[in-house]
Computed example of a mutant assay.
Amino acid sequence: MTNRATAAVELQAVTRRYGTGESAVTALDRVDARFEPGSFTAVMGPSGSGKSTLLHCAAGLDRADAGRVVIDGVPLDGLSERNLTRLRRTRVGFVFQSFNLIPALTAAQNVALPLRLAGRRPAAGEVSSVLAEVGLGDRAGHRPSELSGGQQQRVAIARALVTRPAVLFADEPTGALDATSGKEVLRLLRTAVDRHGQTIVMVTHDPLAAAHADRVLFLADGRVVDELTGPVDAELVAVHTARLEAARTVGA
């Protein structure tokens, strides 16, 4: 039997609303979701279904209006902003569609940034090791402008992994990349799960990207409405996505 305290991330009846009165929008509606250590979950759904809101609430970037979020055994609702920031810096990694690298810093300095923000000097070889993991051991001294888009995203992945977080959240990580670079990024994420037991939660609209995951959660109108578990097939993901889009069109 699984010990419930071991989840990398757990959402319990999480609700998030924006606005007030008649204009209020419920982005998440009592969502329950559990992400096990070493799992790779893709989150999909039509535009406006609550995918990014789920990621932001699960990562502690946004506060839920009701319900509970627990990261690595720590409930977020009882944390001060300072302690929440500390938790995000040490236990959570982020990879976004826009790479969010600091232009004036080298690849190595960008990767080391989360450690320095957490008040820790990188150990000898720590940064070079994680850059080597993403195939950029020879690009440590290059600035973002000297790297391709795919290389910049790999630096962003290295930066997310350097703290060995309990969970890595990825929001459309291949959205700004060509097909070849996108496949390489997905391969690196898959390797992080298989080789290092990294937990990854990835928002995507791409069935081919979702097929790299162990599980796909489908959202509609702020609720989890369907789920596929691995091995995940891209064609099956596309069928489920099209079904949700069709249902949304009929209901509009």
Rank of each mutant, 00 (worst) to 15 (best):
T2N: 12
A5H: 14
T6M: 14
T6G: 10
V14N: 03
R16T: 04
R17C: 13
Y18A: 07
G19F: 14
T20V: 12
T20Y: 09
E22Y: 05
A24M: 13
V25N: 03
A27F: 09
R30K: 13
R30Q: 14
V31C: 04
V31N: 02
D32A: 10
R34L: 09
G38I: 11
M44Y: 06
M44Q: 01
P46F: 08
G48D: 09
G48Y: 06
S49L: 08
G50M: 09
K51H: 09
S52Q: 06
S52H: 08
G67V: 07
R68K: 12
R68G: 02
R68T: 13
I71L: 04
I71Q: 09
G78L: 08
S80H: 11
E81I: 00
N83C: 00
R89E: 08
T90M: 07
T90L: 07
V95E: 05
Q97A: 08
F99L: 04
N100L: 12
N100R: 15
P103I: 01
A104N: 13
L105K: 07
A107Q: 06
A107D: 03
N110S: 09
V111G: 02
A112R: 03
L113W: 11
L115A: 04
A118H: 12
G119V: 08
G125P: 03
E126S: 09
S128Y: 01
V130R: 02
L131Y: 04
D138P: 00
R139I: 07
H142A: 15
S145G: 14
E146G: 02
E146K: 14
G150Q: 03
G150K: 00
Q151N: 05
Q152W: 06
R154A: 03
T163Q: 15
T163C: 12
R164M: 00
R164L: 01
P165H: 14
P165T: 04
E172W: 04
E172I: 04
P173S: 11
T174K: 01
T174S: 13
T174C: 10
L177R: 06
S181G: 05
G182R: 00
E184V: 15
R190W: 02
T191W: 12
A192I: 07
V201G: 05
M202F: 10
A209W: 04
A209T: 10
A213W: 00
A213Q: 04
V216C: 05
V216W: 05
V216D: 02
D221V: 06
R223T: 13
R223S: 13
V225Y: 12
V225Q: 12
D226W: 05
E227M: 10
L228P: 00
G230T: 10
G230Y: 11
P231S: 10
D233R: 11
E235N: 12
E235D: 15
A238D: 14
A238C: 08
A242W: 07
A242Y: 04
R243D: 13
E245G: 01
A246E: 15
A252W: 02
